[in-house]
Design a protein around this nucleic acid. Structure first.
Length: 906
RNA sequence: GGGCGAUUAGCUCAGUCGGUUAGAGCGGCUGCUUUACACGCAGUAGGUCACAGGUUCGAAUCCUGUAUCGCCCACCA
């Protein structure tokens, strides 16, 4: 399964800097070809399954996909290492409107269009295009290191998923949940298609509110002309007015309800009606009613049986009904209408007004509400159970605050317009009969009418909304509607991980579909990550041109650096501003891992010959304080990281590993190991064992985040440690067991003592710096260490090496303090550095005074706190005790500082 | 109009049980070819935790309000 020579033979040949390009491709092939991405049955554990949100085949992956891929891959790799039966299903979305638009643009460049090509040829063209981009997306995902099961890859328009779509359409139709109706819908004149409410973006736009007065048709015997004024943001729609509506409670208009007004410009007689939808307090309290061009007006029209006059066409051009304005563009017509009204003196006022303009999500064109015959899904019966699933705990959303978003939307659900006037997509499985006029709705293609057997039938020209296939994703990808093995084994899935921006479009609809068609929520947890923004905080988008290509980042810094940055730059649900400094820093982290490993491999190479086995943490025994300390820290880290990943706190988990590895392991333990490796054989062996074991376990913890560098280094480690390592059951890090936290290794005493040693070393280093001691010079040091004498006797070689001192002279107590020496305090440990000639008494006094002031302030603070009776009485005893200890320590400290200060004189 | 989020060091961000002397990286400053790493090492400066109230022995953390920025939802013409 493994190539023996995947890694070079000797560690001597390892380059000084980690080169991602040199290793990433190699390991990805190794994993993929070795079958490591496939699930491995484990009867003792629940399967862990994620269905990848399918990217649109429209183009290249962007950083939003990269964050999705990173988080999901980290979860997947973690669960795989836990030994779960782990499956990650990849796929792509055919992305109806987007893809069709892109290809149409391509055709336009070639001087042709889809109508000239014809439907079949056009769809053929799109497929060609899709194949090309699909493989590009796959390659990009591979570069990101995603460990998904490519053998189960699906496409929303493939055969199986199309079957699922038909099954669902027919079932919902049979259940009465799909209907066809003439409704007012959002129409995009650019895409020339209906779109759903969700595909409309409301953008507040500065517009105008035009007040127009309509003369009332005089009653018999009435003298003088009465007027009624209305306000509108879309004056061109006046041409389609078929009524004026007022509030039924509006006293001002009570007597004229039932009368007629004369439509300016066209002189049409329109009735004045009373309707609840009208707010008396707004504007003039009277509303022009254009049932063909406004959703509210449409409703009013239904209630009052008003005619619908379509004056704006589906192409955005005024229709013949617009009379003299026919043939004009809708916005041109608006100008002309206002001019004409002004000439007539019908405009009483024009004021600035903020209008929430609806724009098409895809083309950004201003949408036009138009009446047309479309297919709809009745949503309330589907939404209610989806609401219950969250309410009754079958479903969990992380972070929790999105519960509200989800609930609010479901509680105010509207029917879903699912038909699109496009060619690219799942064609609606409905046939109309020219003979009997009936519809045949069928899972299979039909050639004759189911009602009259006539062959004069035509399939519905339209296709389904692209989300009509993706809302089935968690089960259609597993083989549904067939009762497949995968479906039984992996459904329901575990986590739906995606951006919070598609809760409505996708997530909530999947919940509805899962419950409705399979009776179970499709996943138990919804994890929503934030959006990736550019350095200015703007959302990345193709149109803005501020999108960053993940591959460029990868080329420059390596996949691990990008992944680690995406995983650790934010907290769940919060947006991430991607700044290059951070990626650079994480590239440096990858390099740090590489070099620390290089060191461990080199220094433990000889030691290991036959004597060091598998670098498992359970095989090593601590011999020194530093050993106990690092193993304790590692155990704690392991426990934290495991907990944090389980809670989806990937960022915090990653940060903690980084901190442990860089600070604790590299900066302290590895340096100390250099000292310990000078000892006898036993010491060498023990230290080498710990160096390797801690490295091994760190690599495991890090692997979900940085799969490449960890896998690379891990193989060197095992190659050296285990004879015939390629036969080792866990012959690759990707399937190496996730470590258990060795709770027995937790060691508060070692942490406390080692902390003291660290502080001593830091104080001496600082003093050297301040006194400008040449870095290479070894200085003498005397320490008064009291009860810690044995500990410091054991640790003094560390001080010598790390603080570059001579062998420290230790004293339990010291009556006569050294003169002509810098004096330092580390906790209660007194440190004296006799720096003859270098000591600046004035500076020394200044430093002491400063420290005394600090100590005094701290003591004052603690006194106040402990003097507070309610604190002592009400705070937890441990907290009070801790404060007392602090006070005692500070008092001891200030005593020593003041004594020293006195010795130095005024 | 309704809802949500953010506001912590010069910059980008952690701080998820209320108790730390409020942290990290980058940037700054001072040193360093200490043979794993200059993609590095050692040290160091830098904060009224947006503002105002409140709860509490104790608030960056909980509550209320305000401000600024951002996002989402929305058929008042």
């Amino acid at each position: 399964m493994i190539e023996q020579n995947n890694a070079p033979d000797t560690t001597q040949t390892l380059p000084k800097a980690y080169d991602p390009q040199a290793v990433e491709g190699k390991w990805y092939r190794f994993w993929e070809e070795g079958g490591y991405f496939k699930p491995r049955p484990n009867n003792t554990r629940k399967p862990f399954v994620i269905c990848m949100p399918p990217p649109n085949v429209t183009g290249a992956l962007h950083l939003g996909h990269a964050i999705t891929a990173t988080i999901e891959d980290a979860l997947i790799r973690y669960h795989r290492m836990l030994g779960d039966d782990t499956l990650w299903v990849p796929g792509e979305d055919h992305a109806g409107i987007s893809t069709q638009t892109v290809v149409e643009r391509l055709l336009a460049k070639e001087g042709t269009d889809r109508h000239k090509l014809g439907r079949d040829a056009f769809v053929g063209r799109v497929w060609e295009w899709v194949h090309q981009y699909k493989s590009r997306i796959q390659d990009q995902h591979r570069r990101l290191g995603v460990s998904c099961d490519w053998s189960r890859e699906r496409f929303t328009l493939d055969e199986g998923l199309s079957k699922a779509v038909r099954e669902v359409f027919v079932r919902l139709y049979e259940e009465g949940l799909i209907y066809r109706g003439e409704r007012i819908i959002n129409w995009c004149p650019q895409c020339m298609s209906a779109i759903s409410d969700l595909e409309v973006n409301h953008v507040d736009t500065q517009g105008t509110l035009t007040y127009v007065r309509y003369p009332l048709k005089p009653l018999a015997g009435e003298t003088g002309t009465r007027y009624i004024s209305v306000a509108t943001t879309r004056p061109e729609t006046i041409l389609g007015d078929t009524a004026i509506a007022v509030s039924p409670n509006d006293a001002r208009y009570k007597e004229i309800v039932g009368r007629f007004a004369l439509l300016p410009l066209l002189e049409r007689e329109i009735p004045i009606v009373a309707d609840e939808a009208v707010e008396a307090a707004f504007g003039t309290g009277a509303v022009k009613v254009t049932p063909a061009h406004d959703p509210t007006d449409f409703e009013i029209g239904v209630r009052h049986n008003l005619p619908r006059i379509q004056v704006i066409g589906f192409d955005g051009i005024m229709t013949a009904e617009a009379g003299p304005y026919a043939g004009l563009d809708r916005f041109e017509a608006r100008k002309k209408v206002v001019e004409a009204l002004q000439q007539q003196g019908a405009v009483t006022k024009i004021e600035e007004y903020n209008v929430p303009l609806g724009r098409c999500d895809r083309s950004d064109t201003i949408i036009e509400p138009l009446i047309s015959k479309q297919w709809f899904v009745k949503m309330t019966p589907l939404a209610t159970p989806a609401l219950g699933a969250l309410k009754y705990g079958q479903l969990k959303i992380v972070p929790e605050r999105f519960n509200k978003t989800y609930m609010d939307w479901l509680e105010n659900i509207h029917d879903w317009c699912i038909s699109r006037q496009l060619w690219w997509g799942h064609r609606i499985p409905v046939w109309y009969c020219d003979a009997c006029g009936q519809m045949t709705v069928s899972r299979e293609d039909v050639t004759a009418c189911a009602h009259c057997e006539s062959v004069a039938i035509r399939q519905d020209e339209d296709v389904l909304d692209t989300w009509f296939s993706s809302w089935l994703w968690p089960f259609s990808t597993l083989g549904w509607p067939d009762v497949s093995e995968d479906l039984l084994r992996f459904y329901p899935t575990s986590v739906m991980e995606t951006g919070y921006d598609i809760i409505f479009f996708w997530v909530s609809r999947m919940v509805m579909a899962g419950i409705h068609f399979l009776g179970t929520v499709p996943f138990d947890t919804i994890y929503l990550h934030g959006l990736v923004r550019d350095a200015k905080g703007e959302k990345m988008s193709k149109s803005k041109g501020n999108g960053i290509d993940p591959l460029e980042v990868i080329d420059q810094y390596g996949t691990d650096a990008l992944r680690f940055t995406l995983a650790t730059s934010s907290t769940p649900g919060n947006d991430t501003k991607l700044v290059s400094e951070r990626i650079l820093g994480n590239r440096n982290f990858a390099n740090k891992i590489w070099n620390a490993s290089r060191f461990v491999l080199m220094t433990t190479a000889e030691v290991g010959q036959g004597k060091l086995g598998v670098p498992g943490i359970t095989d090593v025994q601590p011999h020194t304080l530093a050993d106990r300390w690092i193993l304790g820290r590692l155990a704690r880290l392991t426990q934290n990281v495991t907990r944090l990943i389980n809670e989806f706190q990937l960022g915090e988990a990653g940060r903690q590993i980084n901190e442990f590895f860089w600070s604790d392991y590299c900066d302290w333990y590895v340096e100390i190991a250099k000292v310990q490796m000078q000892g006898d054989e036993e010491a060498k062996l023990a230290t080498a064992g710990i160096l390797r074991a801690v490295l091994d376990q760190s690599l495991r913890l890090l692997h979900p985040f940085m799969p490449f560098v960890t896998e690379e280094v891990w193989h060197y480690l095992y190659q050296m440690s285990v004879p015939n390592y390629e036969l080792w059951p866990a012959s690759a890090l990707i399937i190496a067991p996730w470590p258990h936290a060795n709770i027995a290794a937790f060691n508060d005493e070692a942490e406390q003592q080692f902390g003291l040693v660290q502080e001593v070393i830091t104080r001496i280093r600082d003093a050297r710096n301040q006194a400008n001691v040449e870095p290479s010079r070894r200085i003498a040091v005397e320490m008064v260490v009291g009860a810690e004498t044995p500990m410091f006797m054991a640790q003094s070689p560390l001080i010598e090496f790390l603080a570059r001192t001579e062998k420290p002279r230790l004293h339990a107590t010291l009556a006569q303090k050294p003169e002509q020496a810098m004096s330092l305090l580390a906790g209660s440990i007194e440190i004296y550095l006799p720096l003859s000639g270098l000591l600046d008494i004035g500076k020394e006094i200044g430093r002491l005074d400063k420290e005394i002031v600090q100590a005094q302030q701290e003591i004052a603070r603690l006194h106040t706190k402990l003097g507070n009776q309610s604190f002592v009485a009400k705070a937890k005893p441990e907290v009070v005790e801790k404060e007392r200890e602090k006070l005692a320590a500070q008092e001891e400290r200030i005593g020593k500082l003041q004594a020293r200060r006195a010795e130095l004189g005024a």
